[in-house]
Write a protein that binds this DNA or RNA. Structure first.
Length: 599
DNA sequence: TTCCCAACGTA
DNA sequence: CGTACGTTGGGAAT
């Protein structure tokens, strides 16, 4: 970063940072102004630094190895990651807020308010809550009056939350000072969150590992940074193979809108010949046409049509049409065009903890690639893919978080269902169905007797699940093992007397959330540990896909064996921190050239 | 233009 | 054997 720093004096920012109370390994607030500089904040003061943000941050990473503390990785880390800077540790205020508060809000205004005991502010204008807005300009009284980022009532000022206060139209030196001030507020918010995480009451029947909530906040923070990296890195795709897979389903790439239209008509023709000129893309029309053939169905879902395969040739044609249409519209040439870059990387936006239970989500179809396309996910020359997926993760998680000693004993086996089957006195498939039925709240009576035996064999686990279900039915929030608050919908749309259907759905949701959500936490702790290990190895390996219980790494060929070992050791480390020694977690690991070759 | 539903891919 | 998510197209509501 030679010579880029201003404000620190002398050889660099070290002196000023030291005077501001920055210490190696400790929290350091960070705001990035792309192309202009950074705002830093340590416990004793804030420091504006002009210069290239990536160079400044890379230097400080090496010098201080801090826990970078920002409002959100999504808003701050993008330019740094794009410039190739590795950031080892962070506290992501948005991620910690999602963990502590649940719900959909994670903007600075909401996090600040929660951390200071203030009521949640009005939601920022949708779509305009950019990290550092470029919009102008009518800086309101809160800014112009010199009152800075805080309103009189203690809330964050709107002009700061929406980024206008840091916009490029602000005079450069003032803009940097504001960035440092903004970093200071992120640091203060993080400190309050840390106190809340450390002081969190432990409502569970048995004690969690020490500081689990704080550890979880940090691994969730790492996942938020990983989400930024995943989008920058992308998933390596062999475009020729992908196009061949598409072509096999829908034919050659159509040329222009006319070709598009012709291909569409060609897809429809065989079904029209058998079913009449029905609008195949309108389910109601398809339903009516099928009724004309004598099939009276509640809907036209594939599994329902498959039962009628022998009855009329139109059924087979329709099912074939559905597959082709899915490929053409969702995973076809247009999709490749939109999401696969010139460098052969499939890119989409990632979210580190979306939805009710806090799983990762991804756009651009990254989480729902059809199996037929997996041969197209391929290592680049000189590289390998290393794939690992957790085995039977949800029942193992249930054993860990419920504290059921008998289930934990079963979870010490490579195949958890074998001892469960023995305990229940049933065969393995029945045992598996019984466990899943218990975890997810069965409604049809298929596993009735096995479920009653589950109750006798694993009463602690079943009581844990029943308690979550009761909380959900009552509209009470539940907390996952790592401390994530999951709202069950009792608050919003509070109808006076919800029908049984709604109550039952809330119960199933809560029963599922305490398992699925906890599994998501363990997964992210694993992913964060793997990420750190890859960086430490220094061989350029990257996580390229996270898929709920599966990790895919892209590594130089000669590092593949080490990466496979890392996946196993990282799981052991993460699981020990997360659950102690009582439960074993297992991963299936394979070094492959194509994703389809694993498993 | 916005919102909801059906359908289906993944875990 | 239920939950979660994203994407698409169509139709109704606005």
């Amino acid at each position: 970063m030679d010579g880029g720093a201003g404000g620190g004096g002398g050889a660099g920012p070290e002196g000023a940072l030291h005077r501001a109370g920055a210490r190696a390994g400790e929290a350091l607030g960070l705001v990035v102004l792309p192309g202009a500089g950074v705002g830093l904040a340590a416990p004793g003061g804030a420091l504006p630094l002009a210069g290239d943000p990536a160079a400044l941050v890379a230097h400080l990473e090496e010098l201080l190895h801090p826990r970078w503390t920002w409002w959100s990785a999504a808003g701050t880390a993008g330019p740094l990651v794009a410039a190739g800077v590795h950031l080892a540790r962070c506290h992501d205020v948005a991620a910690a807020h999602r963990l502590l508060a649940g719900g959909g809000r994670d903007d600075p205004g909401a996090a600040w308010a929660a951390a200071h005991g203030l009521p949640e502010p009005a939601a920022p204008a949708p779509g305009r809550a950019a990290a550092h807005g470029t919009g102008l300009l009518d800086l309101d009284g809160a800014l112009e009056g010199g009152s800075g980022p805080l309103e009189r009532d203690g809330r964050l000022a709107a002009g700061w939350v929406d980024g206008r206060a840091l916009g490029p139209e602000v005079e450069p030196a003032e803009r940097l000072r504001r960035a440092a001030r903004w970093a200071e507020l992120a640091l203060r918010t993080a400190a309050a969150q840390r106190r809340a995480l450390e002081g969190a009451a432990d409502p569970r029947p048995r004690p969690a590992p020490p500081a689990l909530a704080l550890q979880t906040a940090w691994s969730e923070s790492a996942a938020a940074l990983l989400a930024v990296e995943l989008e920058v890195t992308g998933l390596p795709v062999d475009r020729a193979v992908a196009e061949a897979v598409v072509a096999a389903e829908v034919g050659p790439r159509p040329r222009g809108p006319a070709g598009e239209e012709a291909a569409r008509a060609a897809r429809d023709a065989p079904v029209h010949a058998l079913l009449g000129p029905v609008d195949l893309r309108n389910p109601a029309a398809v339903l009516a046409a099928l009724r004309g053939l004598g099939f009276d169905l509640p809907d036209t879902r594939a599994w329902r049509l498959e039962r009628l395969l022998g009855a009329h040739p139109a059924v087979e044609a329709l099912l074939r049409w559905r597959r082709a249409e899915r490929t053409a519209t969702t995973y076809g040439y247009a999709w490749l065009e939109r999401h696969v870059g010139a460098d052969g990387r499939l890119r989409g936006a990632w979210s580190a903890s979306d939805g009710g239970a806090g799983r990762m989500t991804a756009q651009a179809g990254l989480h729902s690639l059809p199996a037929e396309l997996r041969p197209a996910v391929a290592a680049e020359p000189g590289h390998a893919l290393v794939r690992a997926d957790l085995g039977q993760v949800e029942p193992r998680v249930l054993a860990a978080v419920s504290g059921d000693a008998a289930l934990a004993a079963a979870a010490r086996e490579e195949d958890l269902y074998a001892p469960v089957a023995a305990a229940l006195g049933v065969d393995r498939p029945t045992a598996k169905v019984a466990v899943l039925a218990a975890m997810y709240g069965q409604t049809s009576g298929a596993a009735g007797e096995a479920l009653r035996r589950m109750e006798r064999a694993y009463p602690v686990a079943l009581a844990f699940l029943r308690a979550a279900e009761e909380d959900g039915r009552a509209g009470r929030d539940v907390r996952t093992w790592g401390g994530r608050r999951v709202r069950t919908g009792g608050g919003r749309e509070a109808r006076p007397d919800p029908p049984e259907e709604v109550l039952a759905a809330r119960g199933r949701f809560a029963r599922n959330a305490v398992v699925q959500g906890a599994a998501a936490e363990l997964f992210k702790a694993w992913a964060a540990t793997v990420r750190a290990g890859l960086a430490g190895a220094g061989a350029g390996g990257r996580v390229v896909l996270c898929l709920h219980d599966e990790l895919l790494l892209h590594v130089p060929q000669r590092g593949a064996g080490a990466a496979a070992d890392l996946l196993r050791s990282a799981l052991a480390d993460a699981a020990r921190r997360w659950a102690g020694e009582r439960v074993r977690f297992v991963a299936d690991v394979a070094v492959v050239r194509r994703w389809s070759e694993a498993k």
